[in-house]
Computed example of a mutant assay.
Amino acid sequence: MTTAQIALAVALCLVLLPLGLAKIAAVPFMRRAAAHLGMSAGHYRVIGALEVAGAVGLLLGPVSVPLGVAAAVGLALLMAAAAVVHLRHGDPPARAVPAAVLALAVVAYAGVAIAAG
């Protein structure tokens, strides 16, 4: 367990938990985002649940490295897919940047977690 691993886990959770919970709760902003991307509210709730589960996995990563790395890999795939979905729906590239940055950040977390052992 390293300071970098903990700092990345906390920072990522501060971003992913509120977004995931907002998707699960289907707040109006998230319902509009789902509709814009052609997704049902139920599908968006599943994505939110995956984000919350991944964030919890990152927080547990310092205790269980395999769990943290698995959560990071899952989140990296989810965020990369989000960036692709935004681009395929004709959104400007700037709309895909947050998801791409989160994907890179969770990959960094995985690297730090593996290096820490």
Rank of each mutant, 00 (worst) to 15 (best):
A25Y: 14
C13S: 14
V10N: 02
L78H: 15
A80E: 03
A82W: 04
A105N: 05
L37N: 00
L21V: 15
V84S: 06
V56S: 01
L59T: 09
A33K: 09
L21S: 13
G61T: 08
L67N: 09
G61D: 10
L12H: 08
G111C: 08
A72C: 11
G111W: 10
L21Q: 13
H86Q: 15
R95Y: 09
I6M: 06
L21F: 14
H86S: 13
M1W: 10
V69G: 06
A81G: 14
T2C: 05
F29Y: 05
G68K: 01
I114A: 14
A25C: 10
I6E: 01
L75Y: 13
L12E: 05
V106C: 10
I114R: 12
G61C: 07
Q5W: 09
G61I: 08
A110E: 11
M39F: 12
S40M: 08
A81N: 02
H89L: 03
A100C: 02
M1R: 10
G42D: 11
K23V: 09
L17T: 13
V84W: 12
G48Y: 09
R88P: 10
G68R: 01
R32L: 10
L14W: 07
G117W: 08
A99Q: 01
A108V: 11
L58R: 10
R31W: 03
G57K: 11
R88S: 10
V73H: 08
A72Q: 12
V27P: 15
L78P: 07
G20M: 13
A99K: 03
A55Y: 05
L102W: 00
A11Y: 00
P28Y: 03
V107S: 02
K23H: 14
G68Q: 02
L19Y: 02
A33S: 14
A33T: 09
A11K: 00
L12I: 06
A7T: 13
S64I: 07
G68P: 00
H89G: 05
L16C: 01
L77H: 03
A116I: 05
P92I: 07
G111E: 07
A105P: 02
A70I: 01
K23P: 11
G57Q: 11
I24P: 12
Y109K: 01
A110R: 02
L67R: 09
Q5S: 12
A55S: 13
A103E: 07
L16Q: 02
K23F: 04
P66V: 12
V46S: 04
A76S: 13
S40H: 06
L37G: 00
I114P: 07
A53W: 05
L60K: 00
A7K: 04
V63N: 03
R88D: 10
L78S: 11
L75H: 13
V63Y: 15
V10P: 00
V56C: 01
